[in-house]
Every structure is written in structure tokens, then in C-alpha cells.
């Protein structure tokens, strides 16, 4: 087992963990954390699978590099929206729909 394949599997685990966090957690800051875990997991799968035979692949590495920078912009935008929501409603959770759950 190469380290590429190993970390791709870890990335799959992180992606699913983050995904269930986004679904289950109520606090919005925690949801943003979970969303970031999902992103990191996806990046690990991309790079790990591309070099699962042990040779570094510059194309995926460059793509993931752009992805990381976009992820931080998305996080900042999400935080701005959370702050705006708090200013308007005083809550840090999304309102549950009545027929949800």
C-alpha cells in the first residue's frame, strides 16, 4: 500500500465525517468546520489517488493548490453570512422548518 492510496482512504473518511457533521451539527460555526473537513478530505483523495503508484503528479497538485485558496475564501464568505445572520436574528443556528425531522 503506497502512502498515496493510504491518504486517499483517510481523505474519504474525512470527507464522510465532514459530510455527516454538516448534516447533524446545529451550530453554524461547527458546520463551517465540518465543511472545511469535507474540503480537506476531497483534496486528499484527489492528490492521493493521482499518485497512488508513488510518482508525484504536478497537475493535481496545482489544482488542489487553487482549491485550498478558494476554500478559504468560501469559509470567509460563510463567516460573513453567519455574522450577518447573528446581527439580524441573534441566533447562531438555522431555523428548523416545521415539517423537518
Amino acid at each position: 500500500m503506497t502512502s498515496g492510496l493510504l491518504f486517499a482512504c483517510v481523505g474519504a473518511g474525512l470527507f464522510v465525517m465532514g459530510g455527516s457533521g454538516v448534516l447533524l451539527l446545529k451550530h453554524l460555526l461547527r458546520r463551517i468546520l465540518a465543511f472545511n473537513l469535507m474540503g480537506s478530505g476531497a483534496f486528499l483523495v484527489l492528490v492521493g489517488m493521482a499518485q497512488r503508484h508513488g510518482i508525484a503528479d504536478p497537475v493535481t497538485q496545482a489544482m488542489v493548490l487553487t482549491g485550498i485558496v478558494v476554500a478559504v475564501a468560501a469559509t470567509a464568505l460563510a463567516l460573513a453570512l453567519v455574522r450577518h445572520l447573528y446581527r439580524l436574528s441573534g441566533k447562531l443556528e438555522l431555523p428548523e422548518a416545521a415539517d423537518d425531522d
Partner: peptide, 23 residues
Amino acid sequence: VTAVLLNYRAYDTLLEIGVLLLA
């Protein structure tokens, strides 16, 4: 990696900085 970012796939990088500006 720089060759991919700024030459072969420079289009992606151009759009990426645009996305950052939009964010």
C-alpha cells in the same frame, strides 16, 4: 507545478483570482 498553474492551466488560475475577488 508553477508551469501547470501559470502556463498549461493558466485559464483556471485566471478564473480563480476572479472567484476570490467575487467572494
